[in-house]
Amino acid sequence: MRILGIESSCDETGVALVDASGTATPRLLGHSLHSQIEMHQAYGGVVPELASRDHIRRVLPLTDAVLAQAGLSLKDVDAVAHTRGPGLAGALLVGSGVACALGFALGRPVLGVHHLEGHLLSPFLSADPPEFPFVALLVSGGHTQLMRVDGVGRYELLGETIDDAAGEAFDKSAKLLGLGYPGGPALARLAQEGGDEVFRFPRPLLHSGDLDFSFAGLKTAVLTQVKRLAQAHPDGPATTHLADPLSHQQRADVAASAQAAIVDVLVKKSLSAIDATGLKRLVVAGGVGANTRLREQLGAACRQRGVRVHYPELHLCTDNGAMIALAAGMRWQAGLGHAKSADQPYAFDVKPRWSLAELSGR
């Protein structure tokens, strides 16, 4: 069972092919990815219309590249999967439209995949795959959630952000410091030169007694500190960008202190989820899962508790087609495919807003 997966939910176009034959974890046969970072940098963030148009340009050449890697052709594909949601509506429609067109042309089933389920299951492609059950920390630009995962399609929401996600806190703090897009990685790099405790930023909901997150207040605290430093500069606040008067070291200290606050909350809440469930495995997935400090802090804390931590490979932390093809394969193996086929209309829809909890048991 060879499944072609297409990811187009935001600003990466990803295509991959997996072999989901038998009951073993689907095996990656090939994958290719195009990032739109360079295109969006001029605008300081993702422009949805530009993202959609670029997906149209990239998806078929990437498909050809993946098939060439695998030494196969389209006729060797047994099913086509695509990201159905959540994400940018126009971007999702590109992947969905291409997937359904290929399915119709080939007479193959088409499977719509939840983007976050792709991230959630992506560590199964790593050299150290997890085993069910486990606690999952899904942490990205738009989502911060803790889930109990008992199997494919068996998800229980333990906690989530009530406002900004952790990735948004990284990106917004980076923007306040005048860093480029994407902000999260830029802030993490700058933080390596700063002091974690120079500024004591708040750790929202750290002692709330539940597993929810909140990062909007942290962004406000970073804004207040940057303003204070700018106003203390001999020349006063800049007229172009608020952070212009700050020295490089001041920016690095703000970056390091902000990162430390975000990571502290993520680590504390993850450990609380481990305690609450009694499980001994933690999966960390999503773009922020590539953050070095988060990996170091979580790894050290979990080792002390005898908890195994699993991550996707670094190149699979970002959005990619491999996680979509994998999730489709694992759902197919579990009898949860719900595919469109030649017996049904190939009409497609997308779900820009789609809770992962809705998949449980489906």
Rank of each mutant, 00 (worst) to 15 (best):
L72G: 01
P48D: 06
Q41V: 04
L137T: 02
H115N: 10
L72V: 06
V66H: 07
L106N: 09
G112P: 06
V139G: 14
A20S: 12
D11H: 05
G141M: 04
K75Y: 00
L74N: 07
H34A: 15
H143G: 12
L125F: 10
G107P: 01
L111F: 08
V15F: 11
A70P: 09
S52Y: 03
D19Y: 01
Q69K: 11
G90H: 04
L106K: 10
V110C: 13
L17F: 02
S21C: 14
L121D: 10
G141I: 05
P109C: 06
F104A: 15
P123T: 08
L121I: 15
T144F: 08
A42P: 09
D78N: 11
V149L: 13
D11I: 01
L33G: 00
Y43T: 10
G107V: 07
G87W: 02
E38T: 14
L88W: 07
A65Q: 15
L146W: 06
G87N: 00
L74S: 07
A89K: 06
G14T: 11
F132S: 04
L29W: 09
Q36R: 09
V46N: 05
L102H: 02
T25F: 04
L106T: 06
G141F: 01
V47M: 12
V80A: 10
R58I: 00
H143F: 13
P26M: 01
V110W: 14
P26N: 03
S9C: 12
H34Q: 14
R53G: 10
A136G: 06
S52K: 13
G14K: 11
A89Q: 05
L116M: 15
L121G: 12
G22Q: 10
L74R: 07
T63F: 09
L93M: 15
P133A: 11
A127F: 12
G90W: 02
L125E: 11
G30D: 12
H55L: 03
A79V: 02
L121S: 13
A51E: 02
V66C: 10
G118D: 03
A136Y: 05
V59T: 08
P123S: 05
P26D: 02
T25E: 03
G87S: 03
L138S: 03
D64I: 04
F124M: 15
D11Y: 03
H31M: 14
L120H: 03
D78H: 10
P48T: 06
G118N: 07
D64F: 00
L125M: 12
V135S: 12
G90E: 07
A24K: 09
A136P: 06
G142R: 00
P123F: 08
G103W: 02
V18D: 11
L111H: 08
L17R: 00
L33T: 09
L74W: 07
P61V: 08
D76V: 04
D78V: 00
A81L: 01
D19V: 02
P130E: 04
L102E: 02
G107Y: 03
